[in-house]
Simulated assay, not measured.
Amino acid sequence: MTEGNFTDYVKIKVASGKGGQGSAHLRREKYVAKGGPDGGDGGRGGHIIVKGNKNLWTLYHFKFKKHFQAGHGEHGGKQTSTGADGQDVFIEVPLGTQVKNPETDEVFFEITEDGEEKIVATGGKGGLGNWHFKSSTNQTPRYAQPGLPGEETELLLELKLLADVGLVGFPNAGKSTLLSVITSAKPKIADYEFTTLKPNLGIVEYRDYRTFVMADIPGIIEGASEGKGLGHYFLRHIERNSTLLFLIPADTKDIYKEYEVLLNELQKYNPELLDKERLVAISKADMLDEELKKEMKQELDQQFTNVEYLFISSIAQQGIQPLKDKLWEMLNKGEEKV
């Protein structure tokens, strides 16, 4: 999916370099009548290498460059001189990128660490020079090996965002507004469905200069797990979030029912998503007076027995710090307190 500067799905073609040809050179010096073979080996062709880069958040840089060719190995020289290896080409990708077979959708590997490298197309081996073939019965071989060809292949790059907290909710639930308030991200915000057509990432600044990453995933609709709307394109991003924050507007007719619908969509897409830590934030709480909020709490306490909930208002800045505190506690559960 591509929208603006966000790209999370791209097909590329790669070709490694071919190996250099071995040399069939015969040694010739002024006072050496028959120097014999001294042809060197050809250099290795360049590899195509996928490398993780923690400073990248999107595959947008592949929008205008989708073909990658590594350098060819140089031919061997005289005096058993080996040709130079072809130049390797590094393809940098954000963490959370899967490299797949575009035909079968098979996952070859996944890049999850900064600086992690995987060779996707191996350079051709350089040919042997003629000195390798010298023997007692063939003292002057006048032949050498050619270099081996490189590899050509198509790859599918698919990004699954690596964020600590993923925002889950129906369109127009206030996810983008919350992200803009709680982080320095500047998502597109408007009062209509599917304003967000791409995942947005933001860094949440917590106490004592500590931070965590929050992702605003485009709104889920019923049937998203079957691909309705923008569904399955974005549900995969939720797989990488360690904590899920469900955002439900306070003016929803049935808050708990909406939560169950969202849970159902996640379960149908991937049942393992229900094993993640969950928190419910009831947004737009500035529309409620204290008496109405008290009545809602009595009902919600009976419904939300297995998950915590809290009231927030992004516009009025209500409940934002308690929300940060709770998310930080959930993200660092089990760690020793310093």
Rank of each mutant, 00 (worst) to 15 (best):
M1Q: 07
E3L: 04
E3W: 07
T7Q: 08
T7A: 06
V10G: 07
V10D: 06
I12S: 14
G17Y: 00
G20N: 03
S23Q: 04
R28V: 09
R28G: 04
E29C: 04
K30G: 06
K30W: 00
A33F: 06
A33P: 08
G35E: 01
G35M: 06
G36W: 02
P37Y: 00
D38L: 00
G45V: 01
V50F: 02
V50S: 06
K51N: 02
L56S: 05
W57P: 01
W57S: 14
Y60T: 08
K63L: 07
H67G: 11
Q69C: 10
A70T: 09
A70C: 10
A70W: 06
G73D: 08
E74M: 09
G76E: 01
Q79A: 11
S81R: 14
G83T: 05
G86I: 07
E92Y: 13
E103Q: 15
E106N: 05
V107C: 08
F109E: 11
I111K: 04
E113N: 07
E113Q: 12
E116V: 10
E117L: 09
G124M: 01
G127D: 06
L128A: 03
K134N: 02
S136Q: 14
Q139F: 00
T140L: 00
P141R: 02
Y143N: 08
A144V: 04
Q145A: 08
P146E: 03
G147A: 03
P149L: 02
E154V: 11
L156P: 14
E158I: 07
K160P: 06
D164N: 15
V165N: 08
V165R: 09
G166N: 07
N172F: 03
K175R: 11
T177I: 07
S180V: 10
I182L: 08
T183E: 06
P187G: 06
A190G: 10
E193A: 15
T195Q: 01
K198H: 10
P199W: 03
R207Y: 13
M214P: 14
A215F: 10
D216G: 11
I217R: 11
I217C: 09
E222D: 12
A224K: 08
A224H: 05
K228R: 15
K228C: 00
G229A: 01
G231E: 01
G231S: 03
L235S: 04
H237Q: 05
S242Q: 12
F246A: 13
L247V: 15
L247C: 09
P249M: 07
A250W: 10
T252G: 03
E258F: 02
V261W: 10
L263K: 15
E265D: 10
Q267F: 09
Q267Y: 10
Y269N: 12
E277D: 11
R278E: 08
V280R: 14
D286V: 07
D286Q: 08
M287R: 09
L292F: 04
K294S: 14
K297I: 08
E299Q: 13
E299H: 13
F304T: 09
T305I: 10
Y309T: 13
L310R: 02
F311L: 12
Q318I: 12
Q321A: 08
Q321P: 03
P322T: 07
L323S: 03
K326T: 12
K326L: 02
L327V: 11
W328H: 15
E329P: 04
E329C: 03
E329H: 12
M330S: 12
L331Q: 09
K333R: 15
E336T: 14
V338P: 15
